[in-house]
Amino acid sequence: MKDKTKLIQDIREFNRFYTRLIGLLDGHLLDSNYSLAEARILYEIYTGRQISASQIVSTLSMDKGYVSRILKKFEKDGLISKENFSTDARVSLLALSEKGLKVFHTLNQASNNQVDTLITPLAITKQKELVMHMQEIMQILNGQQ
């Protein structure tokens, strides 16, 4: 039990380190007007091309009401467009507007720049090692090892 407590503490210490390192605790991600949740929803809409709100809720395991409030904000700000699904008028498919695409690309580039700044001081071998360990963590936590 003592060993497990230490493992849990170590994992939580890493989580605190990493969230602080990449600024996830800031109210606004990457010096933008958007939170992490908002940026992630923009990402899902971008990669999903046309995606429903319920798909976003399911993919991100987020509260339906919270996602709904964010989507209303996006709609008000002109970041998304809605189109009724052809076979079910109750379902709207979401897509990024031109303004939404601009915001997404700005956030995406800022995120890429942040990671580049983080890894540039490392030798290329250390960069590759870091990515390998990150992939291994994802495989372990996804139950693939």
Rank of each mutant, 00 (worst) to 15 (best):
F104W: 07
N113T: 11
S58C: 07
L60W: 00
L122D: 03
S35G: 04
L130F: 10
E13K: 12
Q135H: 12
G23I: 10
L42S: 03
Q114E: 08
S92G: 11
V91W: 07
D88K: 00
E83A: 06
D3N: 12
V115H: 05
I137P: 05
T87F: 15
V67R: 02
E83P: 02
L130A: 09
S58D: 05
R40G: 01
K73N: 04
S68M: 03
L79R: 03
R40P: 01
M134Y: 09
I45F: 02
I8E: 03
G65M: 10
D63K: 02
A53S: 10
L7G: 01
L71V: 01
H133T: 08
S58G: 07
F85V: 06
N108A: 14
A53I: 10
E44N: 06
A89P: 05
I51A: 02
I45K: 03
S81Y: 08
L96G: 03
S61R: 14
K72R: 12
I8M: 05
N113Q: 15
T5P: 05
L130Y: 09
T47Y: 11
L42G: 00
L29H: 04
K6Y: 07
G23D: 00
S54T: 10
Q9I: 11
L30E: 00
R20T: 14
T106K: 15
Q9N: 12
E13V: 11
L96F: 02
Q139C: 15
Y43F: 12
Q55A: 12
K128Q: 13
H105Y: 14
F85W: 13
A89S: 10
S81I: 14
T5H: 07
R12Y: 09
